[in-house]
Write a protein that binds this DNA or RNA. Structure first.
Lengths: 199, 199
DNA sequence: CCCTCCAAGTTGACAGCGTCAACCAGAGGG
DNA sequence: CCCTCTGGTTGACGCTGTCAACTTGGAGGG
């Protein structure tokens, strides 16, 4: 069998990501991936032992793209503003890429022990947030221990993750919010995070 | 057709909820419901036009149970403590009932317009939080408008929802938290919410 | 009492999915 | 030339949601 003129494994990943980005992870099937690539339904299994494996591969890619997005702003001298910018980027990503966001955070993920690359990419995104907090603390002349940094990172991540989830899901319709509340909620929540941490 | 000695519709709902509570919503199939009840695979369709309809029914039940849980503590004279108690109840529910929690908040829900009861039950839970904030404001002699109440309710809900999601999902393993951070995070996040709102 | 209708079930079929298993062709190495 | 391995194809199986036809029992009316 000649080396194919394309790497089918990478093509499967790209196609799976396109399906998820277009229609959501619920529509991801290996048979549809195969159909779109013009190969037999079993061909993707030559590269991925199971559906979970291709899922883990695209989750890892999604986390990597997410982390790049979080890190998109150049670092400034103002650690508070950097942290706020990261928070905005988080919400922007969730809004711009709702289906990818749900892939990462709204889907039972494959077992992390079997997919270390996926785990590493997810950790990277969280680590950016922890780094932002460390720089902020240093700029204020503080030296919190690692656990305190992580706890505040969890606080922030919880707020952002929760709000992104509310924005992205049908919960928005469900809650029957008064006019303007939805649009105002990102700035408000970010402001409250600032209140909590002390400006 | 005689009135059956059981209400199959209610039996389907109960069985569906048992499957979700035991194994998660991914394992919910109408055929399994039918098998467990000893009826033919098509029988549940006499009562529910589609899988979405039974899903909406159990989501409504889950929201109702959730709201009862949030409201479990008697009201005291201390509105701050009541609000904190509600926050703890939120996290307790998510921890005690992870699969039901994920049913409500981690699952693409059926179209809310087709299922008004489900919507109403979800709104009730959110309204409890808004009420708690109103009572707190009144106790402080403040009169925030409706939008301000809702925005802070969204802030709190975001925090709790985000944290519950982190606790409940494989993200906990993914993030490789330092020892003790996970156990400390509920108190920490609730404390930060208090910081944000001003004690 | 008989007949009709309807509700609630049963049975069978279909298409889609993930996965198992057997088979095939071509490339590379001995 | 032969053998092995890799990466595909084909076919089958069991599971799901749903469509469709059929059956049965009971209620209601004449």
């Amino acid at each position: 069998m000649a080396r194919p003129d394309r790497d089918l494994r990478e093509a499967c990943i790209a196609e799976a990501m396109a399906i998820v980005a277009g229609d959501g992870v619920e529509r991801l099937s290996l048979r549809e991936v195969a159909r779109r690539l013009g190969v037999s339904h079993q061909a993707p299994y030559k590269h991925f032992p199971s559906r979970d494996h291709i899922l883990a591969a695209i989750v890892a890619r999604a986390f990597a793209a997410f982390a790049r997005f979080l890190d998109r702003n150049p670092r400034s001298d103002d650690a508070d503003a950097d942290l706020g910018g990261m928070g905005l980027a988080y919400l922007d990503y969730a809004r711009a890429h709702p289906l990818e966001y749900r892939l990462m955070f709204g889907t039972p993920l494959p077992d992390g022990r079997a997919h270390p690359e996926m785990m590493a990419e997810a950790r990277h995104a969280f680590a950016l947030l922890c780094d932002g907090l460390r720089r902020r603390a240093a700029a204020r002349g503080e030296q919190p221990d690692d656990k305190a940094i992580v706890l505040d990172a969890l606080f922030i991540w919880s707020c952002l993750h929760g709000l992104a989830g509310i924005h992205g899901a049908s919960l928005v319709d469900t809650l029957a919010l008064p006019p303007g509340a939805l649009e105002a909620s990102p700035a408000h929540v970010l402001g409250r995070i600032g209140d909590a941490l002390g400006h």
